[in-house]
Nucleic acid binder design. Structure first.
Lengths: 209, 209, 209, 209
DNA sequence: GATGAATGAGTATTCATTCAT
DNA sequence: TATGAATGAATACTCATTCAT
C-alpha cells in the first residue's frame, strides 16, 4: 500500500467518523437545530476540521444519504448475485435488507427528503449530487430484479418489476415514517418490525396471481 | 351572529390565510430555509402580524398538520357515516380520500415528521399538541373502521383493523415521500396517482382471504 | 412632505449615521481589523441593523467613497457655476475644495483604492458601483472645466484639460497618501496643508506658458 | 564562502521567493482577501513554511515595503553618486527611477499605507519597523539631494529640497494611485507613463525660477 | 527544514422575535 | 390590530497559526 493510498484511506476514515457523529446529532435534534459545533464535539474534532472534509452543512447532511444508499445497494446486489435462492427466499431477503437499512439508519428517508429543497441542492457539489442519483437508480434497479423472475414466469401479477420496486420502497419508507410519527403522537414505539412484517405479508399475497 | 363571533371568524380566516401561505413556503424551501419573513410576504402580512396568530415558527408549522389532519378526519368520517356503501366502494373511497389529502397538502407527512424533534415539541402550546394527538388517533380509528366489517365477516385476512389502517397510512406516506424523492433523483414526476393506484390494488388483493 | 418622503429621509439619515460611524472605525483600524460590531457600537445600533441599510461590509465601505465623491462633485460644480471668478480665483477654489475634501475625509483615496480588488467589486450591488463610476467621471469632468478656459485662451500649456485634471487629482491623492505614510515612518504629521500649498504652487507655475 | 553563509544565502532566496509570491497575491486580492494559503500556493510552499521565514502575515506584508524601498534607495544613491550628470539628466534619472519602481512593484504605496494601522504596527518586529523607517528617511534624503544643487544655485524656486522631494514622492504616489483607481472607475488603463511624464514636465517647469 | 492537517478564536451574517408607533 | 424597524443571540464558516510527523 503506497503512502498516497494510506493517506486516502485515513481521510476516508475521518469522513466516516464525522458522518457517524453527524447522524447521531441530526437524528437527535433535526437538521436545523443541530449545529456544526454539536457535530464537531460529537466527532471529537474542532469545527474547522469538519470543513476540511465537507464543503458545508448541507453537504455533510447529503453524505449521510449517500452512505446509507450505498449500504442498501450492496445488500441488494448480494441478494441478486446468490443464484441458489428461491423466489420466496429472495423476497424475505429483500424484507430483511430493508429492515436492516432501517436499523442502520432510520433517518434515511428524511435525509432523502431533506435533499429535495432546491435551496439545499444548490449547496451540493455536482459530484455528490450525481453520485446520489446514480446510486439511487442502481438500488431501485436491483430491487426490481428481485421481481423480474416472478413476473416473467407469470407467478406475479402483470406489473413492470420497476413498479413493484417502487411499491416496496414506498411501503418501507412509509412504515418507517409512520412509525416515527406515531411515536410522538401516540407515544408508542418500536412496532416497526411488526408493521413492516404485516405490510410485506400483504404485499406478497397481493402480487401473487 | 354576535359581534364577538364575527370577530372570531375573522380571526380564523386570517389564521387560515397565514397557514396557506406557510404551506407554500415550507413546501418550496423546507422548514429551516423558510423564513418568517418569506411567509409574511406570501401571506401579505407583516412579520409581526404572524405572531398575533401563532406563538412562534414551530407552532405555525404544527398548525399545518392540524389542518390537514382535520380535513382527513372529516373525509373519513363521511365515508363511514354513509351506510349504503359496499365494502369495495368504501375501499375506493379510502383511496380517494388519501389521494385528495395529497392534492390538498403533499407535505403533511413531512409536517408530521418534523414534529418529532423534541426541541420542536417544547415550543408548542400543550393545547395544540393534544389536539394534534387527538385528531391523529381519531383519524386512524376512522380508517380502521373501514376494515372492521371486512375483517369481522372473515373476508379480509385475520389482522386487527387498526393494523391494516397503519399499513394504509404507511403506504400512503411512503408513496408520497417516494414520489417526491424520485422527482429529485430521477427527474421523473407525477407518477403519484399511478403508483398509489397500484399500491392500493396490491394492498386490496393482499388483504382478501 | 408626504409620509413616504419623511420615511425615506429618516432612512437616509440612518444610513449617514452608520457611514459616519464606519468612517471613524475604518480610519482607526483599517478595513480588515474593523468589525461590523465595532461599527454598530460606534453607530449605536445593533449589528443586525447595519444589514438593513447595507448589504454587507464591502458595500458599507464603498458607500464611504460615494459620499465623499458626492461632496467633491458639489464643490466643483459650485466652482464652475460662479461666473464672476477669475482664472486665479478658480484655481484657488480648486485647491481649497481639495483641501476641504481631505479634512472631510482623509481616507477617500484608500477607500477608492480598496474598491479595486475584484473580490470586493463582486460584493457590491451594480447600482452602487455604477453610481460611483458616474460620480467619479463627473467630478473629473468638472475639474477639467476649471482648466478649459486657460487652455483655450493659450495661457496654460498646451495640454488637454482632462490631463491637467488627472494631475491635480494625482497630486492631491499623493500628498494625502504620502503625508499619512510619513506620519508612521517619521512620526511627523500635519504638514499636509503646507505640502499641498507647495504642490499647487508648483503646479500652477508649471502649467503657465 | 562558508557553509554558514551559503545557508544564509539560501534562506534569503526563499524569503524573496515568498515575497514575490505575496506581492502577486496581495496585488490581486488586497490585503484582507488574500490568505496565507493563497500565498503559499503561489510560492509553491506549504502554509507552515511561510512561518519559518516570516513571523506573521503583517510582517510578510511589511517586508514587501522594505524590499521596494531598498530598491528605490539604491537607484537614488547611484543617481547622486554619478558626478558627471547635468541637472536635467539628474531630473530625468529621478523620473526614470520612480517609473522603474512602479514597474517593479506598483503596490508600494498601498503597502506603505497599510502599515499605518497601529494594529498592524504592533505585529511587526521592532527591527523590521526601524529598518523601514531608516530606509524611508534615507530615500527621501537622497531624493532631496537631487534638488539641492538647483536650489542652492538659485535656479530652482526657493524651497527646501526636502519639500521638493516630498512633492515628487506625492506626485508619484498620486499618479500611481490615481491610475489604478481609474482603471476600475473608467475602465481605462496604462496611461501611467503618459500621466507621469506630464506630471514631471509640469513639476519641472514649476520649480524653475 | 518542510509539511499540511488540525485548530479554535474570531466574525460576518441571518432571522426569529419584540415593541414603539 | 397591524406594522416593520430594530434587535441580538445564534451560528455557519474562515483563516492565521501551530505542531506532530
Amino acid at each position: 500500500m503506497g503512502i498516497q493510498e494510506r493517506k486516502e484511506r485515513e481521510r476516508e476514515r475521518r469522513k466516516q467518523q464525522i458522518i457517524v457523529a453527524a447522524k447521531r446529532v441530526f437524528s437527535d435534534k433535526g437538521f436545523s437545530k443541530a449545529t456544526m459545533e454539536d457535530i464537531a464535539k460529537e466527532a471529537e474534532f474542532s469545527p474547522g476540521t469538519l470543513y476540511l472534509y465537507f464543503k458545508n452543512k448541507d453537504e455533510l447532511y447529503a453524505s449521510l444519504s449517500l452512505r446509507i444508499l450505498h449500504y442498501l445497494y450492496i445488500r441488494l446486489e448480494n441478494l441478486n448475485s446468490d443464484e441458489h435462492m428461491s423466489r420466496g427466499q429472495r423476497m424475505d431477503g429483500l424484507k430483511d435488507a430493508m429492515y436492516d437499512v432501517y436499523k442502520f439508519d432510520p433517518m434515511i428517508l428524511i435525509n432523502l427528503f431533506h435533499l429535495q429543497s432546491s435551496e439545499t441542492l444548490k449547496n451540493l457539489t455536482p459530484e455528490l449530487l450525481s453520485e446520489i442519483k446514480k446510486l439511487s437508480r442502481s438500488s431501485l434497479a436491483e430491487m426490481a430484479k428481485v421481481f423480474e423472475d416472478g413476473v416473467n414466469s407469470g407467478i406475479y401479477i402483470n406489473k413492470r418489476p420497476i413498479a413493484l420496486a417502487d411499491i416496496v420502497w414506498s411501503l418501507f419508507s412509509g412504515v418507517v415514517l409512520w412509525e416515527t410519527s406515531k411515536s410522538i403522537i401516540n407515544a408508542e414505539k418500536d412496532y416497526l418490525k411488526d408493521t413492516l412484517e404485516t405490510a410485506f405479508e400483504i404485499f406478497n399475497r397481493g402480487i401473487l396471481k
